[in-house]
């Protein structure tokens, strides 16, 4: 099986089951699959959230996601990497991001999945604007997201 990185940025929702199927299809060399799915919460920093708008940088965003996937491939022995991210208008409960990794063994799959989402949060050009309580606000970046990178240095 050839090693691969697939990335997609899209407005419509994704089907986590179907994405898992694509990670596993004709893949008999990888014994481990990890999936991370991030979803919209109805509260952030104590404020209610009723809607979320996601903006991105068409072109650069896809390049950064592909580069993060490649760096994971160079660091661990992996099979397939799939990174999906939604943009546009979302509501609480919607899934925003999908990271799927297959590997011969579980530790590589678990570590690479965590690495990819940690890098995505600090490097990929996406911006969230939350609405709730009658007002809209741009989400601030979190120091904890940058601190999470320390474990991958």
């Amino acid at each position: 099986m050839t090693v691969s990185v697939e990335v997609r940025v899209q407005e419509h929702e994704f089907d986590t089951g179907a994405e898992f199927g694509l990670l596993r299809a004709d893949n008999h060399s990888d014994g481990a699959t990890t999936i991370f799915v991030g979803s919209v919460r109805d509260f952030n920093s104590g404020d209610p959230v009723t809607a979320l708008a996601l903006e991105y940088y068409p072109g650069m965003t896809e390049k950064v996601l592909a580069d993060i996937g490649q760096r994971a491939l160079e660091r661990w022995s992996l099979g397939r990497v799939r990174i999906l991210h939604r943009v546009g208008q979302l509501v609480p409960g919607d899934d925003i991001v999908f990271v799927g990794v297959t590997a011969p063994h579980r530790q590589s799959a678990l570590d690479a999945c965590g690495y990819i989402i940690d890098l995505l949060k600090t490097e990929a050009p996406f911006w969230k604007k939350e609405s709730g309580s009658g007002r809209a606000r741009w989400v601030e970046s979190r120091a904890s997201d940058h601190e999470a990178l320390e474990k991958w240095r």
């Binding site: 991105y56 991210h85 991001v97 949060k121 990929a124 050009p125 996406f126 911006w127 601030e140 970046s141």
Partner: peptide, 10 residues
């Protein structure tokens, strides 16, 4: 050239 605030995806 693009200018933008810190990213907040994921």
């Amino acid at each position: 050239v693009a200018f933008f605030p810190p990213v907040t995806g994921g």
